[in-house]
Structures are given as structure tokens and as C-alpha cells.
């Protein structure tokens, strides 16, 4: 029951996390910033609009947002939230998660290529490059978590963790995995230092540029799917950093929610205090994340 509730939370609150990031950045910049609920208003506005399609595009272009949103929604089924188990848990569910996100990426990329725009081609090219390098970091990190907990399902890996685990025996493993996941989180969600969501130059964009030609409901789907993807990857991170197991599931969900918004605030801090990396440097960061995951796995093998 509580598992369904946390899916509902994800569906309802995912856009709010982006609001928190933007508010944090505004505070750092000394601005008032946009309303916390801005993304909701954007989504409602977009859903009420018509659409404009490029003459170059085919059905692939309009399939992209649908597949992306469906894939990320499905992945919610297997993602635990803090200490609360996912609705479905089975050995290997982490692969379903990783590959549903892969499917989302595949279709985002081919929808971008469908426009024939060289800007979107460039963004697509960078997206596949960086995500190919981020994939081993995510899966090796999950393998370390699996070995640690003796379980092959996400819910199993994240259950029974205590805040004290982070400082006691096995703490270094968790911290290494968390560091790797943070890089994956930032890279996959197109945040600084990998990508800048607020950039104004198409040449330098990665994720935003792939959606240049989408509009109306399609664009709403894309933005919403991106928010959900951030929520899903964030859940993997806060499961390590805010592991609350009070025995009272509602309390755990509240703790995880607080953790999620703290993560959003932390992302805002990172974005405010760091510059974006040169694109040629990004692969190094991602490979470093893979190395951290591998190190965590080696440590846990003992």
C-alpha cells in the first residue's frame, strides 16, 4: 500500500524538486527566482497548446516523448523510495530500471535526429557519448550494493540500511557508491558540471537542444519525463544517504521526501558554486565515477 503511495508522490512531486533546485540557485544569485511551482504551470500551459511539427519529421519524432514518459513511469514500479520497498521487487529489477532509462534515451535521441537539425544531432551525439560512459558507473555501483546486501533486487539492496552504516563498517563502500551515483545523477539529468540546463546557446547544450523542435503536449511530456527521471535516479542516491528504517513506513516516506528535497537543494548548491566542465573533460569525470564504483565493489568483495 505504502509502495503505491510513494509512486503517487513521485508522480505528483517530481516537478517540485526542479522548483527547489531553481529556488536554491536564485537564492545564491540573490534573486527572488521563479515560483516553486513554476514547472507545474509550464506543464499545464503546454498541455493546453496545439503543436507545430517540422516537415522533416516522421512518426518517430512524436513517438519519442511518449516512449520516454512511458519508460520512466514504468521504472517507478521497481524503484524503492528511501527505506520503502518498491511495488515490484525481483532479482534483476535494477536492470529493468537501467534499460528502461536506456530505452528513454534511445528514443529521445532518434526523435532529435528526426528533425535533421545539426544542433540536435550534436546534442544527441553528446548524450549517447556521456551516457555510454555513465552506464558502467551505475551498474557497477549497483553490483557493489547488491554484494553488500546479498540481494539482486533494488528493494533488497536498499532495505535494512541504517544511517549508522555510513560511518561504521562498510561505510567507505557506501560513500564511494554514493559519489559515483551523484556523478551519474548529475550527468543523466543534464545538470552542471556536465550540462547546463539554463544555457542560452544551442551549440553548448546537450539535453535541452534535443528537445528544440518539440512543442505543446509533446514538450510537456518531455519535461515531465525529465523531472521523473531525476526523481528516480535521486531515489537511488537518497536510499544510500538518508536510509531511514523506523519501522513506521509513513515516517520513512516522509524522511525520504525530506531527503529528496535536500538533494535537490544540494544540486542547486552545486550548480551555483561550480562552473560547467569543458565538454572534453566530461568523459574523465564519468570514467572516474566508474572507477569509484569498481573500487567500491572491490572493497565489498573483501
Amino acid at each position: 500500500m505504502i509502495s503505491i503511495i510513494h509512486i503517487l508522490f513521485a508522480v505528483l512531486l517530481a516537478p517540485l524538486a526542479l522548483g527547489v533546485i531553481n529556488r536554491t540557485k536564485a537564492i545564491f544569485a540573490g534573486r527572488r527566482g521563479q515560483p516553486l511551482l513554476q514547472l507545474y504551470w509550464d506543464l499545464f500551459k503546454l498541455l493546453r497548446k496545439g503543436a507545430v511539427y517540422s516537415r522533416t519529421t516522421t512518426w518517430v519524432f512524436s513517438a519519442g516523448p511518449l516512449v520516454s514518459l512511458a519508460a520512466v513511469l514504468t521504472s517507478l514500479l521497481v524503484v524503492p523510495f528511501g527505506g520503502v520497498r518498491a511495488l515490484l521487487a525481483f532479482p534483476g529489477d535494477l536492470l529493468l530500471l537501467a534499460y528502461l532509462l536506456g530505452l528513454m534515451r534511445f528514443f529521445t535521441v532518434i526523435a532529435a535526429l528526426d528533425t535533421g537539425s545539426s544542433f540536435e544531432g550534436m546534442g544527441a551525439s553528446r548524450e549517447v557519448t556521456f551516457s555510454a560512459l555513465a552506464e558502467p558507473a551505475l551498474l557497477l555501483g549497483l553490483a557493489a550494493m547488491g554484494r553488500r546486501a546479498g540481494s539482486l533486487s533494488l528493494s533488497g539492496m536498499y532495505s535494512g540500511m541504517m544511517p549508522s552504516d555510513l560511518v561504521h563498517h562498510g561505510g567507505p563502500v557506501l560513500i564511494l557508491v554514493a559519489a559515483a551515483f551523484l556523478v551519474v545523477f548529475l550527468a543523466e539529468n543534464a545538470r552542471i558540471p556536465i550540462d547546463d540546463p539554463d544555457t542560452h546557446l544551442e551549440l553548448t547544450m546537450i539535453h535541452e537542444v534535443m528537445a528544440l523542435d518539440h512543442g505543446g503536449p509533446d514538450f510537456a511530456f518531455i519535461q515531465y519525463a525529465a523531472a521523473l527521471k531525476m526523481w528516480v535516479l535521486g531515489a537511488l542516491l537518497i536510499g544510500i544517504l538518508v536510509p531511514m528504517h523506523t519501522g513506521l513506513p509513513p515516517l520513512d516516506v516522509v524522511a525520504a521526501l525530506i531527503g529528496m528535497f535536500l538533494l535537490a537543494a544540494a544540486t542547486g548548491v552545486i550548480e551555483s558554486t561550480m562552473a560547467r566542465l569543458r565538454i572534453l573533460r566530461v568523459p574523465q569525470l564519468l570514467v572516474a565515477a566508474s572507477v569509484l564504483s569498481m573500487l567500491a565493489l572491490v572493497l565489498v568483495l573483501d
Binding site: 497548446k49 496545439g50 503543436a51 507545430v52 511539427y53 511518449l66 511530456f221
Partner: peptide
């Protein structure tokens, strides 16, 4: 389901064709 939702949303609204946005 999403396909149907999108179809319902766009029916009766203006759906235009133009060139790809090349900045």
C-alpha cells in the same frame, strides 16, 4: 494510454507544419 491522451489533447487544436528550427 499516453498515445490516446496525446491524441485527445491535440484533436481540435491547431497542428501546423513548418521547417526545422535551425536557430
Amino acid at each position: 494510454m499516453l498515445f490516446i491522451i496525446r491524441h485527445k489533447l491535440l484533436s481540435g487544436r491547431s497542428v501546423e507544419k513548418t521547417v526545422t528550427w535551425d536557430c
